[in-house]
Design a protein around this nucleic acid. Structure first.
Ligand code: FES
Ligand code: FES
Lengths: 130, 130
DNA sequence: GACAAATGATACTAATATGGTATCATTCAT
DNA sequence: ATGAATGATACCATATTAGTATCATTTGTC
């Protein structure tokens, strides 16, 4: 049960570093600082710029920069990029969705916990991590 | 990000059913009711009786029964049986534990959420699911 | 006691998700 | 022109979860 996977983790660290630089940061620099395998980090950063969390600059002297302000980037967005829609559970009965889902007490209780986790995750922005 | 895996889910449903019967319940009956693949369910039930959540009876007319009272079985125990120690995250840098762990703000925040999830999970017992 | 109906133990396989590589195309400052 | 950067995409590796298969042991019933 991991709330945050490795790529989200790497992403967050990269974002935090970039947020603190006042320039366009290239992968080479991030690799040195974070110690993450270069091709993997590249993939992660590409994804972040596709999702408009980072801005990318191609060509020589290119690299990445935050697209918005650190206060306005919340970690749940980053999680969603790498972990998809965050849903803590789903009841299955041999591949089919459980017919009992509406009534199920367990599901309701888990849902409450889930909502709680969301609320808390939604509050954490990049600025607060620096 | 799943809070509850499939085997935990099956386990909980089996426990709930057994809790409502006033007799020793055999796998055959549970398979009918829950629609879970028999060998898989058997493995799950065996594990639950190893961990003293169920009591098993061998031989003809054998099966499973709750070991304790439904009020005293909490879902977090069942989760631990199948999902091990519940820890929402851990920072890694290429297989090594992150040297920054102590200071890391993200980790601290996640830890708070984690603790919260625990507290809530610890409150849910089987009786409350029936 | 034989037998059938149940669980115990254990090893194996399959599917999925995550983590990570490799390669080539495109852009752009110099 | 060129080389240093990202874009796109396909591929491989590892770990976790889900599920099967097989044989041994126990026990109630006839
Ligand atoms: S949603 Fe299926 S039993 Fe709870
Ligand atoms: S624990 Fe390693 S950077 Fe947060």
């Amino acid at each position: 049960m991991k709330l945050i996977t490795r790529n989200t983790d790497y992403a967050l660290r990269a974002i935090c570093y970039i947020a603190q630089q006042d320039k366009v940061v290239a992968v080479t620099e991030l690799v040195k600082v974070l110690g993450v395998p270069r091709p993997f980090l590249r993939k992660i950063l590409q994804r972040l710029s596709q999702k408009r969390i980072l801005e990318s600059y191609k060509g020589q002297a290119g690299g990445f920069r935050l697209k918005g302000q650190p206060q306005k980037i919340f970690i749940i967005e980053v999680m969603r990029v790498f972990q998809g829609e965050i849903a803590l559970n789903g009841c299955f009965l041999n591949k089919h969705v459980c017919p009992n889902k509406g009534k199920c007490i367990l599901r309701k209780k888990i849902k409450l916990i889930e909502d709680d986790v969301f609320t808390q995750l939604k509050r954490i922005n990049i600025a607060s991590l620096i």
